[in-house]
């Protein structure tokens, strides 16, 4: 019995907080940035500023949630930006040709997951690196965009315009769009799936050590294919939200979005080698990107390219932080 207590003593207690350090750091960063904004610009304290961050980044949030699944398994999905664009394009073009909105929604929501599933299969069955397989997916989806049309297609459908213009708000005039609610719903569902279902836990196990996961009898291959499918689904939802937001489908929209998404996920505390991270962190990461943009817009003297530089700097800082606190299990 005495040695049992010695075992307890050997356990490394601070760890519980340790794995939350990246997320807490992101939260702190977000609060600091918000505080800076409020102290510098009077209008920043307006609640609508926060709501606007959500409105402007709702589709990014949804896509980042899907990317979180992929990165948690230690993979990466470069196709998300193109799939977002392709979904918007397909929706716009089908609506233009007069199909009913409900049918268009179904079709648009099927394309992303199908492509994700195929990429997942290529990765799992043929050992093609995720980077390359999803690069092909990226090329394909972007090519499809211009194949459909090389010019922007406006959307005039009633359902779309309603979704775009509907404001849900409080009596004082602050409001969010329906897209924000959809995005938050996706976040909640994803957080629930990751925490309370076997699939969710398998995602973490595969990212922690896929060899062990295999030996523990977990369905590694199925999980891996599934996360790319989930990411494809999230990209599809993101694409629809984007088409609500812009009321059009444009072949070159969301170019380079995958970088923002990956950056948001990493800044949100998810480890790029997999196995550690939270959807909640991803939300924070997206908010950080959104607030940076808002700050730069408010400033007026700073230019948009500072966004990229700051994001790059934050990426570096968080990757270094992850290394310093040693969240590497391999």
């Amino acid at each position: 019995m005495s040695s049992a207590s010695s075992t307890t003593a050997r356990a490394w207690r601070p760890s519980l907080a340790r794995r939350h350090v990246p997320v807490l750091a992101t939260l702190a960063l977000l609060l600091v940035m918000y505080a800076v904004g409020v102290s510098q610009y009077r209008a920043f304290s307006n609640v609508q500023v926060v709501f606007n961050v959500f409105i402007d980044n709702g589709f990014l949030l949804v896509v980042a949630v899907g990317m979180t699944f992929v990165i948690l398994t230690g993979g990466i999905d470069l196709s998300v930006g193109s799939v977002v664009a392709m979904t918007a394009m397909v929706s716009a073009s089908l609506l233009q040709s007069g199909l009913p909105a409900a049918l268009v929604l179904v079709v648009a929501l099927l394309i992303g997951p199908t492509l994700g599933f195929l990429m997942g299969c290529a990765i799992h069955f043929f050992d093609i690196q995720p980077f390359i397989a999803t690069l092909a997916g990226m090329f394909f989806a972007r090519g499809m965009c211009t194949f459909i049309s090389d010019a922007s297609i406006p959307i005039t459908d009633g359902f779309w315009t309603t979704m775009s213009q509907e404001r849900i708000g409080d009596p004082r005039g602050n409001f969010v769009s329906i897209s924000v609610l959809i995005a938050l719903a996706v976040v909640l569902v994803a957080a629930y799936v990751l925490t309370y279902t076997r699939f969710g836990r398998n995602v973490y196990a595969v990212g922690g050590n896929s060899q062990s996961a295999l030996l523990m009898g977990l369905p590694v291959g199925r999980t891996r294919i599934a996360v790319y499918t989930v990411s494809g689904l999230c990209s599809a939802i993101g694409g629809i939200l984007l088409s609500f937001y812009t009321l059009s489908g444009a072949p070159l929209i969301a170019v380079g979005m995958e970088l923002d998404v990956i950056a948001a996920v990493v800044i949100g505390g998810t480890v790029l080698t997999g196995g550690s991270g939270y959807v909640f962190g991803t939300v924070l990461g997206v908010l950080v990107l959104g607030v940076i943009q808002t700050l730069i817009t408010f400033d007026g003297s700073l230019n948009s390219w500072w966004t990229r530089i700051v994001i790059g700097g934050l990426l570096f800082a968080f990757i270094l932080l992850q290394r310093l606190i040693g969240i590497r299990f391999k």
């Binding site: 019995m1 049992a4 075992t7 307890t8 050997r10 356990a11 490394w12 519980l16 794995r19």
Partner: peptide
Amino acid sequence: DLDIDVTALLGTYSLAV
């Protein structure tokens, strides 16, 4: 005979545990 915090991450314990 092992009395440890089961909510802690496995990686934080010694190899023996």
